[in-house]
Design a protein around this nucleic acid. Sequence first.
DNA 1: TATTGTCGAGACTTTCCGTCTCGACAAGTA
DNA 2: TACTTGTCGAGACGGAAAGTCTCGACAATA
Lengths: 196, 196
Amino acid sequence: MPNEESRRPHTGRRRNEEARRAILDAAVELIGRDEGPVTIDTIAAAAGVGKQTIYRWWPSKGAVLLEAMAERATADVPVTDTGSLAGDLDAFLLATFRSAGTGRTAPLLRMVMAEAQRDEQVAEVMRDFIAKRRAALRGVLERAGGRGEIRADADLDLMVDQAFGVLWYRILIGHAPLGENEARELGRSLVIQSRP
Amino acid sequence: MPNEESRRPHTGRRRNEEARRAILDAAVELIGRDEGPVTIDTIAAAAGVGKQTIYRWWPSKGAVLLEAMAERATADVPVTDTGSLAGDLDAFLLATFRSAGTGRTAPLLRMVMAEAQRDEQVAEVMRDFIAKRRAALRGVLERAGGRGEIRADADLDLMVDQAFGVLWYRILIGHAPLGENEARELGRSLVIQSRP
DNA sequence: TATTGTCGAGACTTTCCGTCTCGACAAGTA
DNA sequence: TACTTGTCGAGACGGAAAGTCTCGACAATA
């Protein structure tokens, strides 16, 4: 089956980028403000948009939130190279905790994770997102391994999950803060447990 | 205001223990079987019970699932004393992973966590449950600290969250297994990072 | 035997999701 | 300029699920 896009150039009115931004921003804004329910109807109303405009471009509410989350995560957490495992971990974890643990983002992450549990389509995209974040952190560890900073029998995947596990666990339960001190202490414990 | 229970002894028909068991079991069974939706109606029907009988004793579906989860966790994971940190951690983590990572329980945990994100009442009880689990593991670490097995500046709360963080993160995302090997490897990394 | 509270069953209301339809409008085509 | 195509905001609509309410039956106690 040939691709229909290639047979015929696009006709008709184009997608409104302003509507897309308004939807993503309204969703995050509603969740962060924490006043009343966050539904497709309230998001559409807050964005000044019809419901169909949302469903035309996203399959579900979870997909909207997931896109907003991914947008922020990739923009806020670049991978830097300081030359040492301790430095790289500190940079990565500080940026990650700052981005995820902050006021508007944490409630967003909570709702995305909840949606992923009851919507297999959201879970699918979520796994892709998670895989990318894990690969970024794993890259930091592998680079340190190449410098001889990590013992040979260390379980890198487990270390990655320890880091993101603490992050998500604390976000979802809310029993402990996610600040700079916590990021640094976590980085330190990962360095210690992986030393040759 | 005096307690009404103390003024007048209970009269009328008593709570049916068999109905309670049937409700909790039906809920877990429905979630584990993963066929069709798990709602208050389907739980009531599967338990052979009226909806009102559920709402008389639990405020929401999440509360039912949370009770079923807590019931299993406390029964399946006793704290044992082997005399060494490595042994105690192994016993605790093996029992925990066996209980949580297994077929019927993991989907239950997923749904409870999801409910806790959108129901503050469930979240409240959830935090109590989590606090008890964390205290159990922290007790293991403190006992090891008393034996001089842990460095003085170790962050015990962070270690606890690393363990449960990995558990929940892998349950919720499903990107990696939660078997005996993983439990042992996790125990090993916690021992290494906390050595004096 | 009378009172009290639980039982199973199901009707009912409310909320939210997701689909469908409408007239208006914008972008490309003839 | 007309015509075609697809998006826009708005809202009606049906279905699913939560949670409330009522009913007659039944069990435990006074």
